[in-house]
Design a protein around this nucleic acid. Structure first.
Length: 570
RNA sequence: GGUCGGUUCGUCUAACGGUUAGGACACAAGAUUUUCAUUCUUGUAAUAGGAGUUCGAUUCUCCUACCGACUACCA
């Protein structure tokens, strides 16, 4: 009978979760969901030396932000500030968490018996060499241009239960505490392995070294033992992990064999690494700082140094975009589709389309993904997300309708939601700056807020004279602008011929445009000159939104004030 | 140094042993526009090198080069 698919993501809480780690988690998640299996989170904190406070909470929060929530290994504990469930690692056994605890440090008592079992079966031995002694041997070997490894040859010369008498071994185990249990790599064997991504591989056991499995000093297992034991106990069916583990795959095969667990040994898939965008080597924390992009999903403050690392979330990326770009970094669906939601990825993901070679991360493409998701948001969604920023910058509440129409206008111009304000601020504030809100615009605006190059280029006497004439036209004309009043809106719409299926805003803007361009054309003025001078007075520079759009949003009164201020100041 | 893995446009990648080697990002040019952006059209650009197998190799084999991981009582 086929076993239920169970995969795990097993990070070590030694710092913030790297984006490569998130990708590994994502692939595990997709694989589990596709096979109606379980995605399990386990924390591998068997290294007490490198434990970093907050790292585990960070991992949980990052996965939750991405929507890659584990099925097993976590438990809800209250809610977060934003109302989302707050998850912590499961410590008690329950129906959903039958293998609790999921933190290896809390599973500590479990591992020794397994290590001892291997010793009694002859697959492992006690080693009494101190770390200092071994370091010294390594240094000596290096000085002699050789490499010291603890293996089938050197173990015969070292202090361990294979060379010492039974009595001496017993005495050392009972009276000292800096000994270890090492795996006894068999001699002259070939380990044949299979990787779901890379295919068949072979390694000679004589090139392997006797890895430490368990340490008496802290009574903890090393990664290799804890990993195999827990994967076995947790009935893991596929191990999907980073390529940095490929060199220890033979050891893991041997370990399964030694335990007699070959029948239920998981299948393995090793994911290639994420590489630096430039130069060489794998993507690291420093690259982000250097090249100006985040390497971590969430912002992280190093608890010791207070050093801050930026995060995708804080940089304005949508979690959907982050997940999408990660999914396509080292995998492709074989079609030309590039935009996927997490749900859409589940049925089409497959390990045999995972790329073997490492992938260089590309920031430009990452931004493009975000832009795609921004464009898929409705104006209503964007308006809701944008409202707090507008409130903060202007001190006023704008109606959902106003913000929605603004968002419709500007969404194509933005890559990130964080850019929305800069693109549209002229619709809320006069060029003079933050203190002056649209409706309260004052005429006396200092020249400094205008782009001086644009002023030089467009504020000619001729342009100013023409704009002054337009100002009179605007003052004397009646034209509709933005209003929240539905009756007014409907009245305008119904006054139009039935075939003109335009929105209220489109109608207003076309009327405003007719008024201005009609006059300019009749006078045979240069369109670009006049329009850019107006834009300069409206926004402070000559790049950006359309003139009729601006007038529509700021209204007639403010339009007049800005033109008067511009004429006076420039 | 040793072991293992990898190598297609600048980047991410596609291509039953038979394609004018395709797409996307970026870049460039043109069109549209009152500016900018968007949009549309077009363009530049790649099989690391060398042997071999084959009628035919990006694809299979070997060698070389380069890149990477691992080589801890870390994970």
């Amino acid at each position: 009978m086929a076993r239920q698919t169970r995969v795990r993501f097993a990070p070590s809480p030694t710092g913030p979760l790297h984006m490569g780690g998130v990708r590994t988690a994502l692939y595990n998640y997709l694989f589990a969901k596709q096979n109606n299996g379980k995605f399990i989170l386990r924390i591998e904190d068997t290294d007490s030396q490198r434990f970093v406070p907050g790292a585990e909470a960070y991992i949980l929060e990052a996965l939750q932000w991405c929507g890659i929530v584990p099925d097993e290994g976590i438990v809800q504990q209250g809610v977060n500030e934003d109302g989302t469930p707050h998850f912590v690692l499961a410590e008690e056994k329950s129906e959903t968490n039958p293998h609790a605890p999921y933190r290896q440090s809390q599973r500590k008592p479990l591992y020794r018996q397994y290590a001892e079992e291997l010793v009694s079966k002859g697959f492992a031995y006690y080693a009494f060499d101190s770390a200092e002694e071994l370091n010294q041997k390594r240094a000596e070997a290096e000085a002699a241009k050789q490499t010291f490894i603890y293996n089938y040859e050197s173990r015969k010369q070292l202090r361990n239960s294979l060379t010492l008498s039974k009595e001496e071994t017993e005495r050392l185990i009972n009276t000292t505490n800096n000994w270890t249990i090492r795996f006894k790599i068999p001699e002259n064997e070939t380990v044949k392995m299979n990787d779901l991504i890379r295919g068949e591989m072979e390694v000679e056991t004589n090139t392997l070294d006797d890895k430490v499995l368990w340490k008496a000093a802290d009574q903890l297992p090393t990664y290799h033992l804890a990993n195999i034991v827990d994967d076995h106990l947790m009935e893991i069916t596929e191990v999907i992990r980073g390529a940095e583990w490929l060199p220890s795959l033979p050891l893991h095969y041997l370990l399964y064999k030694a335990f007699g667990w070959e029948d239920t040994m998981p299948r393995f898939a090793h994911l290639s690494l994420l590489l630096k965008p430039d130069g060489k080597g794998k993507l690291s924390k420093r690259d982000g700082d250097r090249l100006g992009f985040p390497v971590f999903p969430l912002k992280w403050v190093n608890p010791e140094t207070q050093e801050v690392s930026r995060g995708y979330r804080e940089d304005g990326y949508y979690p959907e975009a982050f997940v999408n770009l990660l999914a396509l970094l080292g995998w492709n669906p074989g079609t030309e589709q590039e935009i996927f939601t997490l749900e859409e990825l589940i049925p089409i993901f497959s390990l045999d389309r995972v790329i073997k070679s490492g992938a260089k991360f590309n920031v430009e493409k990452a931004k493009w993904f975000n832009e795609q998701f921004l464009r898929r948001r409705t104006a209503a969604q964007l308006a809701k997300e944008f409202a707090p920023t507008v409130k903060e910058k202007t001190g006023r509440d704008y109606s959902q309708l106003f913000l929605e129409e603004v968002c419709t206008l500007i969404k194509e111009r933005a890559h990130f939601p964080t850019e929305l304000w800069d693109i549209s601020k002229a619709l809320f504030l006069c060029p003079a700056g933050a203190a002056q809100v649209t409706a309260a615009a004052r005429p006396e605006i200092p020249v400094a807020v205008y782009d001086l190059n644009d002023v030089k280029k467009f504020c000619t006497e001729e342009n100013k004279a023409h704009v002054a004439e337009l100002l009179n036209l605007i003052k004397e004309s009646n034209f509709p602008t933005f209003t929240d009043n539905q009756q007014e809106r409907n009245a305008l719409l119904s006054s139009q011929p039935a075939d003109a299926a335009a929105t209220y805003k489109e109608l207003c803007c076309s009327k405003i445009e007719e008024l201005l361009t009609g006059y300019i054309k009749a006078k045979e003025w240069k369109m670009g000159q006049i329009m850019n001078t107006l834009r300069l007075f409206f926004t402070g520079n000559t790049r950006g939104l359309g003139i009729s759009d601006i007038i529509y949003f700021i209204g007639k009164e403010c339009t007049i004030k800005r033109i008067e201020a511009g004429l006076k100041a420039c």
